[in-house]
Every structure is written in structure tokens, then in C-alpha cells.
Computed example of a mutant assay.
Amino acid sequence: MIHAAMNVQTWPLVGWRDIVHAFRPDHSAREAHLKTLRRNHVVSDGIRFTRRANHRLAGAGHLYSHLNVSAAVLHRQDRTEDARAYRERATALEGELARVLRAYHLGADEVEPLTELASREARGAMARLSDLTEEALAGLPPVADQDVTRGLLHSADGRRVRFVDAEGTVERYLPYGLLESSGLSVGDHAVLISEFTGASLVIRLEPGLLVQSQPGLGTDAQTDPEADDAAGAESAEGGERVRAPLGDDAYRAALFDHLDTEDADGP
């Protein structure tokens, strides 16, 4: 059982395969499908970058706003105009991503989904972009026939994975193959999307980002490290509560701090 509710946000960035999988969930991801989405103007350009390892070049990468995933689903549902509205907002968010990365002195390779984030700055940048994504979603038409559950991949037995929602009120047992195909691991925070297509149920498992409320921080404390001094002075007066990423040690410890030491029995 979870002792306290977790605040899990959707990881705000995706790769092209995530977009294609949302568009054609019954097929292997192919770049031809991405070209189809681009031809119909329902996917943004994304951000190209160079990966580095040990101060050396380690190949090229490409990141997209998570809004492109919803745009792909909407296009599949024959809601192309709505999909293009998502694409427009995704393009704006990708421009904002470049500014956020500069503010936090980060490279794009440090915020890729499923990357082991060692720094508080990387998690703070993603928390900021996630907030901006939620603000953009407020002005967009919703994706129909989807159920979204945020939580923790708690345990696995080789055949199935126990997923506990952020409130600690729902447990779901997922096929182990879903964990393998998502690239996630036990202990990761995740977002479970169930889409009802009429003929079948499509399930996707996406990376999540754990954030928490911290007292005494100003609004800009998590959003822009260059504004730390001003934010601290403002928070001393108002004591405003905002969402902030967990610190390095707390981030790892919190994976199971919310859970009892003994697992509940499965159904």
C-alpha cells in the first residue's frame, strides 16, 4: 500500500518510435509511418542533437514534444484538424525546450526518456517543461476514449508487472512483455494509457516523472535556475508552495518510500 499520494507527471519528451507506436499500435515502428504523419502535417519537427559520452561524440538523436503522441492518436481517429492543433503547440514547446535547456546548462542528451538522470537540474528542466505541456493541454481538445493512470511499477514476477497508481488506491497487473517493450524497469514511475478503439483495447506504458511540493519556494525556483535569488526572497514573504523535483538522494530513495515493505498478494 502507498502511504502518501505521489505526484507523477508524464515525461514531456518522446522519440519518434513513441509517436509511430501511438499512430500504428498494431505494427512495428517504421520511419515510413513517421513520414506519413509529416506529410499530413500532424507531427512537429522536433529537436536534433548530438549525443556525447566521455566528452566524445556518440551519435545523433532526435526529441519531440509529447504532444505529438496525442496528435498521432487523433490523426488515427480521423481528427486531423485537432491533431494539427496539437502539432502547433508541440512546435512552440520544442522552442521553449531549447530555452529551458540553456537556462539549466544542459544538453538534450541529458533529458532523453529512459536516461538515468543524475542531476537535479535535468529533473528540474523536465518538471518545468511538463508544467508547460499541461498548460498547453488546457487549451486543446481532449483525446477521446483514453484512460490515463499515473503511478509506479512496483514489482514483477517474470509473468506480470504490478503497477500501483499514484493515489495508492488501484493496483493493476500488466503483461511482463509490456514492461520489456516500454524500456522501463521495476521501480520506475510510469504513465499507463488504455485506449478503447471499439474493436480492441490498446495499452501503452510511458515514462513518468516524480515531483513533489516543497514549502518556501517561489514560483521561479524550479523553472529557471538563474532566478534563484529573486525567488528565494519572494518565497520568504509569501511562502508559496510549488512543485519541485526531488533532490538527488531523495529521488532514488522515494522510489519505495511510499510503499509498505511487504508486497500485497496478487489476485
Rank of each mutant, 00 (worst) to 15 (best):
I47A: 06
S235Y: 07
D263Y: 09
R150K: 15
F49E: 01
L34D: 01
A71S: 15
E180R: 15
V14S: 02
A244Q: 01
T36E: 10
L184P: 04
A72H: 01
V164S: 13
D18G: 04
Y173R: 13
T261N: 07
A5W: 04
A4T: 09
E94Y: 00
E240K: 08
P207A: 14
Y104F: 15
R159D: 15
S182R: 04
T50L: 10
A108H: 06
P267C: 03
V202D: 11
R243P: 00
G232V: 04
G151C: 13
V42H: 01
T133K: 01
V148G: 07
R241E: 07
H33N: 14
V143F: 03
V8Q: 05
I47W: 00
A156D: 11
H21E: 06
N54L: 09
T115G: 11
D109S: 14
P225C: 08
D82T: 05
A108D: 06
L255G: 14
A71Q: 02
L140S: 03
D145S: 14
R252F: 13
V161H: 03
A22Y: 01
D220Q: 08
V100K: 01
R24W: 07
E134L: 05
R162M: 10
S155R: 12
L37V: 03
F163G: 02
G95E: 07
G266S: 10
A264M: 09
E226V: 01
M6R: 10
G168N: 09
A53H: 11
G208W: 05
D26V: 07
G151P: 11
E121D: 12
T50H: 04
E234F: 10
M6F: 09
T169C: 08
D165Q: 11
P215N: 07
S181E: 15
K35R: 13
V143K: 00
D157G: 14
A233Y: 10
T91H: 03
H66R: 12
G239H: 09
G158K: 09
D26C: 07
T50C: 05
F163L: 09
A29Q: 05
P215C: 05
I193W: 03
P225Y: 07
S185A: 15
T80Q: 12
V161Q: 03
W11I: 01
L259I: 12
A103G: 04
V170E: 15
R99P: 00
V211I: 15
V42T: 10
A58Q: 11
D265Y: 06
G177V: 08
D265N: 07
E171I: 05
S181L: 15
P215A: 10
L114A: 09
E81I: 05
L106W: 11
A236K: 13
H154V: 14
A108F: 02
W11V: 03
I193G: 01
A199I: 05
G216I: 08
F23S: 00
T10K: 02
Q214N: 08
V14W: 02
V170P: 05
E195C: 05
S200Y: 04
D229C: 05
E262R: 14
F163D: 04
G15N: 08
A71L: 03
T219W: 12
L101A: 03
H33M: 08
L106S: 06
Y86E: 02
E116L: 14
P141M: 05
I19G: 00
D109N: 13
T261W: 07
E226H: 06
L210M: 11
E237I: 13
